[in-house]
Design a binder for these strands. Structure first.
Lengths: 156, 156
DNA sequence: ACTATTTCGACAACCACGTTGTCGATTCTA
DNA sequence: TAGAATCGACAACGTGGTTGTCGAAATAGT
């Protein structure tokens, strides 16, 4: 059908939707006492989880090198969201854990994402939104989120 | 409803959808003789268009500084996709134009995007895909695509 | 048990991308 | 005509990611 949207609109809208949600999340996060958290940090918190991990494992989960993961941990540690602790059972490992502040940010993010989703549900209708999510699940891989955006987008 | 997806899944799926489409596009583009084009370059070509523009105007269209736009133009010029021409009517301006190769890449991108959309239509059904696009249009702003992804995502 | 391989974390060098600041040259405007 | 705004280029800087190397510590194998 010639009335169909041009193919390039689809990726544009998908990214715009992603960006709007993330921007809204961080605007609200800033209002709630976390003004210095960046979009990528949320994914890092999610990958660390409540139990904590090591830098090397974090790199694997996020699809980046352990060195890059280490740098990110450095930054978040300086901001007070993460803490490195020595592993009693393995002298090589240093377990990265979320601090009180990190856990607070993670919990607030989850709540705000739910609120943003509810707002979309108001606009689109709950059934349409569920259908949208279901459709997206069918065309996207099960892979984890990869954090190599900068290199992926512009990289060599 | 407690059976609803958690709010954080929506942005993840949106980005994953974007990434899958862009990755597939560039895999096919590489097969068709454009292996060195990066995801961001496609948006640059689109912003330049067939008539050409200046670096400053390009920066405005992409939401980045004119200096950043100038750097990108440098890179694409080295790759043979762009050409700088002096403007006869304004000695300050240098018009950036797509070369033969740039136009070829732009045309192939459009065709590949249409094919990828058709593939999604096979999976989801043409009506569901149109509904998905329509829903996305209702929740995304009319703004143009902004190319400041690296800075936006990891930024200062 | 002792050696060989693997893994972890850190350091360094490097590249890509974006930013602000500055500059001379040119064009527009008051 | 004089002053303000624009264009393009250069420099300095910060961030993010990558590869390569290294010593220390754990694990596997003979």
């Amino acid at each position: 059908m010639s009335s169909d949207a041009p193919g390039f609109e689809l990726p544009l809208r998908l990214f715009l939707g992603f960006r709007v949600l993330i921007d809204d999340l961080h605007a609200e996060l800033a209002r709630q006492g976390h003004p210095d958290v960046r979009p990528m940090h949320g994914f890092v918190f999610q990958a660390i989880g409540a139990e904590g991990t090591t830098a090397a494992e974090l790199g694997r989960r996020l699809g980046i090198s352990k060195q890059a993961a280490g740098k990110t941990v450095d930054a978040l540690e300086r901001l007070g969201y993460l803490r490195r602790e020595a592993d009693p059972g393995d002298a090589r490992r240093k377990v990265v854990r979320l601090t009180e502040r990190g856990l607070d940010c993670l919990a607030r993010s989850a709540r705000i994402f739910d609120e943003l989703r509810a707002r979309w549900a108001e606009v689109l209708g709950a059934d349409r939104l569920r259908a949208l999510e279901a459709d997206l699940r069918r065309v996207t891989p099960a892979e984890a989120f990869r954090l190599d955006i900068p290199g992926w987008f512009g990289g060599p």
